[in-house]
């Protein structure tokens, strides 16, 4: 009976899987860089339309200090925005679950608010919160707020009925039910909300920077574009992609570790 355990073979895999996925990633990047270079040479692209990958690479090294400084600003905006949006989302989800009147009033407003494109209110945010980091944090938080709230709320609401029945026959109070059953049961749903949030939070931060800022990767890209320093723009874009991808994988890894029962 002991070897019926379906998870055992899976547990041995990761090491092999990691090496394989690294190789896959390397091959994919090489193919992309190769075709990029081929495109530049084949179509005789001028540098101010499409710089070659090598030019971008040299720019990355040349201007690493400037790039790092602006990356740090954007990273802060994304992370703090995530934190703020997550907190707001969780608070709203719990409010709606615990207090039915709040839910009846707040849910329609919440859904209606999604009809307003977040980008459209960016200028207002700049006006109220200034050109600094605060307006971008709020921007990123606003863009992730909805998916976090809905995922968390749905997760809390859709606890399998059997779990609730069982806990009720065991004499659980409302708070114990929430703490020991509903909340952990909602974690996988919340995790998918967080995965979505991590992907879209950078959009909020960058859009905020485009509308008005004095630092950050979005700002750097606009400046470089205006000065026809397309290789620098690409360098900033490259760092931004790496930042987003790293953030996603870190979040994914962390969630898998914290919620090992997730399917």
């Amino acid at each position: 009976m002991n070897n019926l355990n379906p998870l055992m073979p899976l547990k041995v895999q990761p090491k092999k899987g990691l090496a394989k996925s690294l190789v896959r990633m390397l091959v994919t990047s090489l193919v992309i860089i190769g075709s990029w270079q081929a495109l530049v040479i084949g179509l005789e692209m001028p540098t101010f339309i499409l710089p070659s990958p090598f030019e971008v690479f040299f720019k990355l090294i040349d201007r690493h200090q400037v790039l790092l400084k602006h990356s740090w600003v954007t990273a802060q905006e994304i992370l703090l925005g995530l934190l703020l949006g997550l907190t707001m989302g969780l608070v709203f989800a719990f409010q709606m679950l615990l207090c039915k009147p709040i839910k009846r009033w707040v849910l329609p407003i919440l859904i209606a608010s999604q009809a307003i494109p977040v980008f459209a209110i960016a200028p207002v945010l700049m006006l109220w919160l200034g050109y600094g980091i605060a307006s971008k944090i709020v921007m990123a938080a606003l863009i992730i707020f909805f998916p976090i709230t809905t995922c968390c709320y749905d997760g809390l609401r859709n606890t399998p009925r059997g779990y609730l029945d069982l806990a009720n026959t065991m004499g659980a109070t409302k708070w114990q039910l929430l703490r020991y059953v509903q909340l952990p049961a909602a974690l996988p749903a919340l995790a998918s909300g967080i995965r979505v949030a991590v992907v879209i939070a950078p959009i909020g931060a960058i859009a905020g920077e485009w509308v008005g800022s004095s630092e950050g990767l979005g700002y750097l890209m606009l400046q470089a574009n205006a000065r026809m320093m397309i290789d620098e723009m690409f360098a900033a874009l490259f760092i931004l992609s790496i930042l987003s991808i790293a953030l996603y994988f870190a979040a994914d890894k962390l969630l898998k570790k914290l919620i090992p029962w997730e399917v």
């Binding site: 069982l166 806990a167 065991m170 004499g171 659980a172 109070t173 114990q176 020991y180």
Partner: peptide, 8 residues
């Protein structure tokens, strides 16, 4: 041990 966590 689940039931030991519940009760008034």
């Amino acid at each position: 041990l689940l039931s030991t966590q519940f009760g008034s």
